[in-house]
């Protein structure tokens, strides 16, 4: 068996799936949903209403306190198992949907806590200056507070994004075809160690690109001193 066969198998499975594309889909879609969702959760967490902030605090604590793998299984199989035998019975048509839902909610919880720390670190004077100038609450948050928050939290967000690249491999537990799922299958069917090396190189290169990209973003925002 040559490395070319291996690579072509990992590129496109015999069933026509594209494992690398599967990994990239989870990554991109999770970021698209989790980054804005995190802001909403952070704002609810900072809500003046004790009830809302306590509920959100509890939800965040559950999402961060239980394994992502478990959450992934609950979202993927839960609805099917719970509704079995009822007239709402159904089979999950597409694995990508529950995977992205589970990842987005889980990562939004982590992002929310990062945003919260960032929002709380902005001085009261910034809000007061905006208030006296007559900015609305929404204008103040979007124009004055959020850009400063993003600048401050970028290093922590980069950390989470790097973890996300590696966490995409957890999707193999629900048999969603991403790179790691296929690596495992190929390794067993060819009884070869090589696929694991290839996977390691892939994740490393992926994260290398992510890191360089995030450094660029950080640099583009460092035109002022905090």
């Amino acid at each position: 068996m040559s490395i070319i066969t291996l690579l072509s198998d990992l590129w496109k499975t015999p069933y026509g799936d594209m494992p690398i594309l599967g990994t990239v889909y989870i990554f991109v879609l999770t970021l698209i949903f989790a980054l804005p969702l995190g802001i909403i959760i952070a704002l609810l967490r900072l809500s003046k209403s004790k009830i809302i902030s306590s509920i959100i605090k509890l939800i965040i604590s559950i999402l961060r306190g239980t394994p992502l793998m478990l959450q992934l299984m609950i979202v993927t199989y839960g609805p099917t198992l719970l509704l079995k035998g009822t007239r709402f019975q159904f089979a999950m048509p597409n694995k990508l949907i529950p995977v992205v839902i589970a990842f987005s909610i889980n990562y939004a919880a982590y992002f929310a806590e990062i945003y919260r720390g960032g929002i709380e670190s902005i001085s009261k004077g910034q809000y007061e200056a905006a208030e006296v100038l007559g900015y609305s609450k929404t204008q103040t948050f979007i124009k004055i507070i959020l850009p400063q928050v993003i600048r401050r939290i970028l290093p922590s967000v980069t950390n989470e994004i790097i973890t996300l690249v590696k966490d995409t491999s957890i999707a193999f537990t629900v048999s969603y075809v991403e790179l790691f799922t296929e690596v495992k299958r190929v390794a067993i069917s060819y009884t070869s160690f090589m696929p694991f090396i290839i996977a390691g190189v892939f994740y490393y290169v992926f994260n290398f690109i992510v890191t360089v990209a995030m450094e660029r973003v950080e640099k583009s925002m460092s035109y002022y001193q905090q």
């Binding site: 200056a129 100038l133 204008q139 400063q148």
Partner: peptide, 26 residues
């Protein structure tokens, strides 16, 4: 208008933007 003890300028806006943003957007 209010001038604060510690200025409270918006650090991510240029001097000009600090001045013109509220008259334009508010």
């Amino acid at each position: 208008g209010l001038v604060f003890q510690n200025f409270n300028l918006f650090p991510h806006y240029s001097v000009l933007r600090n001045i013109i943003d509220a008259p334009i957007n508010v």
